[in-house]
């Protein structure tokens, strides 16, 4: 990815009237006495990037894990691409997940496999045999997108923290999902790489008209990628709006994020 091809930040208008691909209705989740989410509701439209802000430990990761079905909310309904995920069995869930991408906060690279095998894994899982021949091209393309084309045969342990994050991103993007959930995609990266990744997120959104749900603390990146920003506080959706709207918000809890 060369800097020349970077799309201009915040160029895309928020497609407010587009089809809703993901709905969260009154989600609650607690671990014992720790009530992490209380009545959280949010909608995600096709072709839209929503950034969720929130203090550390406020339950952002729990929220996205609920969306992908790794955690089961105590109450509320999650509808993904028209399907209520609580009603799906394992097979149907797998099929649905093929259309979703999830970037783990901890990367979760398979450390017994090389970078190439890490990328091939979701491909092989989802594809039928007749698409095998495209494998090498797709892996190469995905690695070039994150600027790590020469690491294909390394093990994750041989990479730096930032490189691992980028490989994890490549693994998320390789299946060209319709909805991507990013859990802190730019944390731990230098400002230049962080900007490149933000640009990549934008690029993917525009190219494939994907919807994205992005958790981030990095306000630079938020400004670049967000069509809409939601603030998670006290377990609910405390405020939402465009970056500019929230930046001008009077509530100090909201305001503090932007200073």
């Amino acid at each position: 990815m060369s800097p020349g091809t970077l799309p201009q930040p915040a160029a895309a208008p928020a497609p407010r009237n587009a089809e809703v691909v993901l709905t969260l209705e009154h989600i609650s989740k607690s671990f014992g006495d720790n009530h992490v989410l209380r009545d959280f509701s949010l909608e995600l439209h096709r072709g839209e990037n929503v950034v969720v802000l929130g203090k550390s430990g406020s339950g952002k990761s729990v929220l996205v894990k609920c969306m992908i079905g790794l955690l089961r909310p105590d109450a509320g309904r999650i509808t993904v691409l028209g399907q209520d995920i609580s009603t799906l069995d394992h097979e149907e869930m797998d099929q649905l997940r093929a259309r979703l991408g999830f970037l783990f906060q901890s990367n979760a690279l398979y450390d017994s496999m090389t970078v190439r095998e890490n990328l091939v894994f979701p491909l092989r899982r989802q594809w039928l045999a007749d698409r095998r021949d495209q494998e090498a091209d797709l892996v190469q393309q995905a690695l070039e997108d994150v600027g790590l084309a020469d690491t294909a045969n390394k093990l994750p342990a041989e990479l730096s923290g930032g490189q691992r994050k980028r490989i994890a991103l490549a693994r998320t993007l390789i299946l060209q999902p319709e909805i991507i959930l990013y859990d802190e995609p730019t944390t731990g990266l230098d400002p230049i790489t962080a900007r490149e990744i933000s640009a990549l997120i934008r690029q993917v959104q525009q190219k494939y008209n994907t919807a994205a749900f992005i958790i981030s603390h990095d306000m630079d990146s938020v400004r670049l990628v967000a069509d809409r920003v939601a603030l998670l506080a006290e377990g609910g959706c405390y405020a939402q709006g465009t970056y500019e709207e929230l930046a001008r918000h009077e509530d100090p809890r909201v305001h503090d994020f932007f200073t």
């Binding site: 894990k65 992908i68 079905g69 790794l70 797998d94 099929q95 997940r97 093929a98 979703l100 999830f102 783990f104 901890s106 979760a108 690279l109 398979y110 450390d111 894994f121 979701p122 899982r125 989802q126």
Partner: peptide
């Protein structure tokens, strides 16, 4: 979370 990652990969 590699097991979760597998689950997410379908």
């Amino acid at each position: 979370e590699q097991i979760d990652a597998m689950e997410v990969s379908g």
